Computed example of a mutant assay.
Amino acid sequence: MSSRTAKTAADATPKPAGPGRPKDPGKRAAILDAAKRMFVAHGFDGVSMDQIASEAGVSKLTVYSHFGDKESLFAEAVRAHCEAGMPTSLFEADPAMPLRERLTSIGNAFFAMIMTPEAIAGHRILCSPQVATSAMPAAFWEAGPQRVQQAFTELLERRIAAGDLEIDDTERAAAQFFTLLKGEAHAKAVFGYCCGRRQETPEEHVAAVVELFLRAYARR
């Protein structure tokens, strides 16, 4: 092969985007959407980067350029799901909003987010033996629950400063709030079990959690 021919072939070969090159946000969004659909439908091990690329309508090289590997793509899919379900605006300071109303809006958003088919499927993926022993649970925690709990912890600290709450350990209180919100309903959804005692509506469930939380921590 002549040097000119070799150069032409090399030029035709796709190259990964370098650190300084801007990446196409539209392609990134398409990849995330495709990954979420395929992880839900087939599980983590049942999906390849080739399949995600095909579903997103991009090259495999583009997928790797944006996300590096499948584990990172899964973590970003979790982050995107959490940011869509619980945007930063939910936790922004608004002293005029009554505390019960603020907690209820956060509780409703969180419960709706964790009960989606995507979230339930993601939870099952993380509980699988292959994934549970990998680095993915830590990546999931940092991308999703840790972000939400940190934002809520900061909100609690602002409300303590405003005189609305009395809490010695805000991180523990934040974990308690979201654990109560998950409750029995989330466990049943993960197990695929829909029978048993009368099911509360999501609104009833969230209202009961908020009431319990305020009984424990509202300033007397």
Rank of each mutant, 00 (worst) to 15 (best):
S2I: 09
S3D: 13
K7G: 02
A9I: 05
D11W: 01
A17Q: 13
G18Q: 09
R21M: 12
D24K: 04
D24Q: 03
P25F: 12
R28I: 10
A29Q: 13
D33F: 03
A34Q: 00
V40P: 04
F44M: 08
E55P: 06
A56S: 00
L61F: 03
V63L: 11
V63H: 04
V63F: 07
V63M: 06
K70F: 09
A77W: 00
A77S: 11
R79N: 01
R79G: 01
H81A: 14
H81V: 05
A84V: 13
T88W: 08
T88R: 14
L90W: 05
F91P: 02
E92P: 02
M97E: 14
R100K: 09
I106R: 12
I106A: 12
I106V: 15
I106C: 13
A109Q: 07
F110M: 04
F111P: 04
A112F: 06
E118W: 10
A119T: 03
P129A: 02
V131G: 05
S134G: 14
M136W: 07
A139F: 04
A139T: 04
F140S: 04
Q150H: 09
A151F: 00
L155R: 08
L155W: 05
L156C: 15
E157S: 10
L165N: 12
E166S: 13
I167V: 14
D169F: 10
T170P: 15
R172M: 12
A174G: 13
A175L: 11
A175W: 02
F178E: 07
F178L: 02
A185M: 03
H186E: 13
H186S: 14
K188M: 12
V190R: 10
G192D: 00
Y193H: 12
G196S: 00
G196T: 02
T201Y: 11
A207W: 02
L212G: 11
F213K: 07
Y217W: 13
R220N: 12
R220Y: 09
